[in-house]
Design a protein around this nucleic acid. Structure first.
Lengths: 129, 129
DNA sequence: TTCGTTGCAAATGTTTTGCACCTGA
DNA sequence: TCAGGTGCAAAACATTTGCAACGAA
């Protein structure tokens, strides 16, 4: 495993994500970081997002529609994805981690995790109907 | 809404999916259908997959890694995705649809569905470790 | 005849990668 | 010094789309 070296770009991306709660896309992150480091490249953003996700310092969220999103909050929680405006919202709900045991009952492989996303229409979009 | 017209390509895709249990990708479907209709184009496969998914005759599965997969079984069920070989396997488990109510408790939008995928190592890959 | 469907190819959107240069340890 | 990181541009990958021709109703 390669030794990790400090990089201001990576730090900046991590810090940016830890202060946002709207699960931005790589492109949004790129645009924002560019106001601080105008020469940063999109490739660097993707490389660092992927690196940070691999070492567990951020989470990658696949919405199933459109680009991936990133989350600086690595504490276990669930997301709601609006079918109308595609915003991704953190849910304040009790843990359902036990569904992994439900799923393991008749299965011979090893289940070590799960991803659950909830879908529907967010409060804002309901108002604008 | 446009009236739906018969097409042998679409029928063929639907029938193919209803006889497969391994959740193929668009490309795999394309290759297989091509043995019957050599002139079918990948665009047509995508168009029909997307159409069939929209009218609920098949399901689209986003694995969060690699291309989307498609499922001819539209009865509610859950999937296991192997982190090693990326195969997608149907789980025989009790319904957990009620987690939608758990999620709705402190949420002001309207939740109408959820997608849960389980991750881990499949039986085959455990053997080959 | 009408209008949905197709094949083809080009375009799109997202993400990854090769490479020469730069930088932190 | 030197391995990891960066910027840039090109490539890869999955999917969508414009268009003229085709085919079902």
């Amino acid at each position: 495993m390669a030794a990790l070296k400090y990089s201001r770009q990576r730090e900046s991306i991590k810090e940016f994500l830890q202060n946002r709660y709207d699960h931005p896309t790589a492109d949004t992150i790129y645009d924002s970081i560019r106001t601080i480091y105008p020469n940063i490249s999109l490739g660097t953003v993707y490389r660092n997002l992927s690196l940070l996700a691999n070492i567990g310092e951020i989470n990658k969220i696949s919405t199933g529609d459109g680009p991936d999103r990133f989350d600086g909050n690595v504490a276990p929680h669930y997301h709601f994805i609006c079918r109308s405006c595609h915003s991704v919202i953190d849910l304040d709900m009790e843990d359902i981690g036990y569904i992994k045991d439900v799923a393991s009952k008749n299965f011979n492989g090893k289940i070590d995790g799960h991803i659950t996303n909830f879908y529907g229409i967010c409060e804002e979009c309901i108002k604008n109907l």
